[in-house]
């Protein structure tokens, strides 16, 4: 099942299918390792519901819902 990283629940993980942001943000996400097929786990949500904190490639990355919205994921079983 595909859904946006924004809609993940805490603890849920999945694989990146594609990133559809505008080019500058997409480039930044790629640089940080958010590339096709990489596994991402949503580990934390900030007190006011935004930003999100995810784990990928062995490190912690924070991003806002606005940026996470454009990361299309395949949810892991």
């Amino acid at each position: 099942m595909q859904k946006s990283l924004k809609d993940f629940a805490v603890g849920q993980s999945g694989k990146v299918v594609k990133v559809v942001s505008e080019s500058k943000i997409r480039r930044r996400l790629y640089d940080m390792g958010v590339t096709h097929g990489v596994e991402i786990k949503l580990t934390k949500v900030a007190p006011m519901g935004d930003p999100l904190n995810v784990e990928l490639r062995g490190y912690q990355l924070s991003l806002r819902k606005a940026e996470a919205e454009n990361v299309v994921m395949e949810v892991a079983e």
């Binding site: 930044r28 924070s62 940026e67």
Partner: peptide
């Protein structure tokens, strides 16, 4: 306009 927030959380 808001700047993006894509940041590493250090250990």
């Amino acid at each position: 306009e808001t700047a993006p927030f894509i940041m590493e959380l250090p250990d």
